[in-house]
Simulated scan of single mutants.
Amino acid sequence: MTTLDRPGSGYAALQPLSSSPGAYLPATPSTTQWGRLPSDADAPVLTVDPGTTVVVDTVSHEGILEDQGRDPVAFFAGHGVGRDRVLDDAVLIAAEGEHDRTGGPHVVTGPIEIRGARPGDLVAVRIGDLVPRTDYGVISSRHGRGLLPERFPHGNSVFCLVENLTRGIAQARATLPLTAGAGSRPVRFPIAPFLGVMGVATPGSRLSSTPPGLHGGNIDVRLLVTGTTLFLPVQVAGAGFYVGDPHFAQGNGEVALTALEAPLRATLTLGLVPKEVAQERFSGVRGPFALTDEFLVPTGLDEDLDVAVSKCGENAVAMLGSVFGMAPELAYAYLSAATDFEISQVVDLVKGSHARIRLSDFPFSTISAQEFVR
């Protein structure tokens, strides 16, 4: 592993809470699944009413995986991290958690039942504070995957310290070395925390945590930061919402297999859009989509990246029609002239694309998540 010989930032690790004034879901072997996603056969680990705000702890898979020794204390000690800066829940899950290695690497917290949720509804996840639980993380390339597996076929992990976290996320900078070896100068880049995995349970067997789908899951859309609302189509009664794969930062594409993976404490408000409202206001839009202060964000998912972008385009045309009443041929022209289509990720078996439709281009029509959510 490549690392910098640097001291800690003085940021105290956010260990599991002993108590909470509101709804709180810790990450434990009994409240998480490792490698696969919840299905309709899984009992909820928490049940809430629509509109409830929940604080959820997430654990990163980096540092606890089998090829890293499945011992985060020893793994991170090799990079100058003392025991007090290693999360107790990461240690417990590494020791006692059951990792289904036929699935993916991710630890997901959940499922959370939302009372009254039914297939056809949309779960509206309002993303509040996303607080780093440590001041370090890991970027990995392994298993002959990533954008350039022929050039980088062997596993490589880069340990990243985050500086200035005590001053807040806006001032924080992640660091990684310019070259291997002691004394290397650091490269610094800003962090923008988000959850790579947010999804709802599916009928039947548990799905691998790696490929995303209409249920959401490992969509890895870096726009899903604090202040954004993610909409997920309910697949089973109660929704079975879950989160995982926390990131401190990611570039569009996530080309090396992972981005800067590191644990977060997430504050999320879980609302519902009734089926009738969803059909009226988002007719023809399939799969997850998001609403930020600036953009409507449709997505497209497929094993073929060309098809994923095409599906994103279809969803964007449908969204412009259902939300703003725009004619399809004019929507298509508008998208070509004014909308960025971006690659979410190319490394999760099912590739992803998302588009950024500027809300300010439609000043005659205001849109907010609250007008849909019940």
Rank of each mutant, 00 (worst) to 15 (best):
F76V: 00
Q33T: 12
I169L: 04
P177M: 02
E280A: 14
L264V: 08
S336V: 12
R167E: 13
Q250A: 14
P153K: 04
A308K: 07
S322H: 10
L260H: 10
P288G: 05
V225H: 14
T32H: 09
V225P: 02
Y24E: 02
T202N: 12
L25E: 00
G63Y: 01
L87S: 12
P38D: 13
V323I: 09
S157C: 04
G300S: 07
G204L: 08
F282E: 09
R6K: 13
T292G: 09
G196C: 03
A327F: 09
F241N: 01
L195I: 11
A27C: 08
G217A: 11
D89R: 15
E280K: 15
E96L: 14
Q15P: 13
Y136L: 06
T267R: 15
N315D: 00
M1K: 08
T366L: 14
P263R: 04
A333G: 03
D5I: 01
V243N: 06
R206L: 02
D67W: 07
Q15S: 09
T3E: 08
A182H: 14
T28N: 05
R265Q: 15
Q68D: 11
V56L: 07
G213Q: 00
V187P: 05
V373Y: 01
D135T: 14
E342C: 12
L330A: 07
E280H: 11
V285C: 00
L148F: 11
R167G: 07
G313D: 06
V131F: 03
A174D: 01
G146S: 09
A239G: 00
K311C: 01
R142T: 10
T267K: 15
L65D: 13
Q250Y: 00
L291V: 04
G300E: 02
V255R: 12
A172Y: 11
D348N: 15
A318Y: 05
V73I: 11
Q15M: 11
L165W: 07
L296F: 11
F372K: 13
F364L: 13
P21T: 09
S60K: 11
G120L: 00
S208A: 13
D340L: 12
R265S: 14
I64M: 11
A249K: 13
P153Q: 12
Y242N: 02
G183K: 04
E280R: 15
L349D: 15
Q15F: 09
V138M: 12
K275I: 03
P38L: 14
D304K: 15
L272W: 09
Q33Y: 06
V317T: 10
Y24H: 14
D135L: 07
G51E: 05
T134C: 05
E303L: 03
G199R: 11
A41Y: 07
G313S: 01
A182D: 15
S157E: 14
R356G: 01
P186W: 00
L224W: 10
G155L: 06
A355F: 03
G10C: 10
L176T: 03
V138F: 06
S19F: 08
Y334Q: 08
G51T: 03
F194W: 04
G128T: 03
P111Y: 05
T47V: 08
R115N: 02
P212R: 08
V45H: 07
H143Y: 12
M1T: 15
F372A: 10
T175M: 11
P105S: 13
L296V: 09
L17S: 05
